[in-house]
Design a binder for these strands. Structure first.
Lengths: 341, 341
DNA sequence: ATACTAAATGAAAACGTTTGCATAACTATT
DNA sequence: AATAGTTATGCAAACGTTTTCATTTAGTAT
């Protein structure tokens, strides 16, 4: 078996009887080379098994053909729709994605960004707006095309595509109060270094306060972004305190865990307790009961974010940030109902 | 704001009063440069805002610092644990991951592999063993360090880390028959170009046949890997035919959807019907009812796969494939019980 | 036929590193 | 004190492309 790790553009050129320059052109400016020579080059390429070297291309200071993505975790459903949509769209335009996870740690994020820049990514996509000063500074200094996905923010320093999490929180709180609930618990993850969760929570609390509803401390639950932790937290709540008639959860995963908790304690959702999520993950519609939640349109966000990033990469680097607001919408489903009197 | 996109190793060298070679060495062989000079270089680096150029490094034919991962989809929970574990482990060793999705299309996979090789990834990780001849051939010709994750296969052409899916299928079938079930339905996705699903299904069917149980065609359900499709399929089954006492699903996502279907039709799982999954996804333990399934240890697989790949990258390229078999194990939980007579 | 333009290709410099070899400055050995 | 060995650094070639500029060839207008 012949092992050819090192056939280069010169070998191809020789085989095709042209100069390396022409081979290069046939890749990058095919219109500038005669159809017939192009054919000969193609043939030489497949005969030699040549695979072009993007590193050597990138070194020219031109295109590396990669974009970087920094995401808190790949471990759960939260970002998967978003990433998939973003990835597919970038791929369509010939980009390959360098993916890294920061585990919700902003210092780590900075290191990862540096590492991505070492690889000369042409652009970077981040989640949310909580990033360290160092990160923002580096992006600015190197003038990196960048887009923040997931939540919209007026006056954001960088381009962004997403829904308003505060609005999402307020909307779901509105839904719950309109169903007559007043004994309401909320369940959110740690909101430090996580503006998505923070904004949602603020939206919920502020709306409820406005309606004269105050959440007592023991109904203010802190949980991880996992079904199991959410379930445990909810069980503790249901077992130890008189229970609320509704729980507003920070996202669908948490809501799911809490529904399981209720069911495992013999409660019927929504007859005994209403539970809501935020985010509308793909399985939320088909679960039982289906989850009342707020649609954040991850596919749309991912796709549009890709477009924004492409535009920044190809276009004017000094332009003001592009901000696209994706509408949010309450999807009332089976996990909530009018309160019984 | 000063925009410095182009400070290079020479600028750093000048600033630090050394030669470029020394700067380079301080990155790659720090032991070969005097502590005091190293300090001066570090200072020059932070003063200039230098970020090294991996493309220029990769062009030396040496390390690119990247590995490629080709995965069918990022869109659901199936691979997320695995990917996360793999990713974290590679990162620890200084690698950044280039991730691409092939949407379960093997031709696409070949194109993606080429694209990864253009970026001169040092190694590649794939899912399963169903790959096109072209793919296998290219890997062989270019002598690419490669590992297949997710399922073990004796005599595989390439290194692999995973459980035996056939065994997993047989084990769960054994569990169900030992609970006394004979009226059993199975629910699997399209097994073409998907050896994981195929092996599992074969394991199930063969075991049942051995026990004299034949699955009638209308209990042989074909579904997508999604909660919603699984739920719809199960509803069709439950509404239109006399229903089985147990359903063996191809994975936990499908099982989950089918449980929802049963619940939405007023059936109790497991009292009225037992339902099993395969894979033990992170939420399967905490759902209600928790799902009886087969553990495939995705974290262990991801981590070990990373080790195998690293070893191939750093070690002997001509060595025979490394094959690591990760044990599978039935986790009996709430979604199954002894049949009532 | 001649001069002029356009299109296709080639030659060579450039991109930012790494590394083998050479050199210089020390240290240890006799 | 002379020699051999060691260590830290610099010099310059090399890595595989892309691109500018120059050249050749073919085509067009006179």
């Amino acid at each position: 078996m012949k092992k050819n790790t090192n056939v280069d553009i010169i070998d191809v050129a020789i085989k095709a009887g042209v100069s390396p320059a022409t081979v290069s052109r046939s890749f990058n400016h095919p219109d500038k080379v005669l159809m017939s020579t192009r054919k000969r080059i193609e043939k030489a390429i497949s005969q030699t098994g040549y695979i072009r070297n993007r590193a050597a291309q990138a070194i020219q200071g031109k295109r590396s053909g990669t974009v970087g993505l920094i995401v808190p975790t790949l471990d759960n459903a939260i970002f998967s729709n978003l990433i998939q949509a973003f990835s597919v769209e970038m791929r369509k335009h010939g980009f390959t994605m360098l993916v890294t996870t920061n585990g919700y740690d902003l210092n780590d994020e900075y290191t990862l960004l540096r590492s991505l820049l070492e690889h000369r990514v042409e652009g970077v996509a981040l989640i949310g707006h909580d990033h360290s000063d160092e990160t923002y500074n580096l992006l600015d200094i190197r003038n990196v095309p960048v887009v923040s996905m997931w939540n919209y923010k007026e006056n954001s320093k960088i381009s962004c595509v997403g829904g308003e999490n505060k609005e999402a929180g307020a909307e779901i709180a509105k839904h719950i109060t309109e169903l007559g609930h007043t004994k309401i618990a909320v369940a959110f993850p740690n909101v430090k270094e996580n503006d998505r969760a923070r904004d949602r929570k603020i939206g919920v609390i502020e709306y409820l306060n406005k309606k004269g509803i105050i959440i007592p401390e023991y109904w203010n639950i802190k949980t991880e972004y996992s079904v199991s932790d959410a379930r445990n937290c909810a069980i503790k709540l249901l077992d130890n305190y008189n229970h609320p008639t509704a729980i507003i959860a920070g996202n669908d995963v948490i809501a799911r865990g809490m529904i399981y908790a209720a069911q495992s304690r013999g409660l019927n959702v929504p007859n005994d307790i209403s539970i809501t999520g935020i985010g509308d993950f793909s399985s939320s519609e088909s679960s039982f009961p289906s989850i009342t939640t707020v649609r954040m349109r991850p596919n749309e966000v991912g796709k549009k974010a890709a477009s924004v990033l492409l535009e920044r990469i190809n276009g004017d680097r000094e332009a003001d940030p592009t901000r696209i607001r994706v509408s949010v919408e309450v999807k009332a489903r089976e996990s909530t109902k009018l309160i019984n009197n």
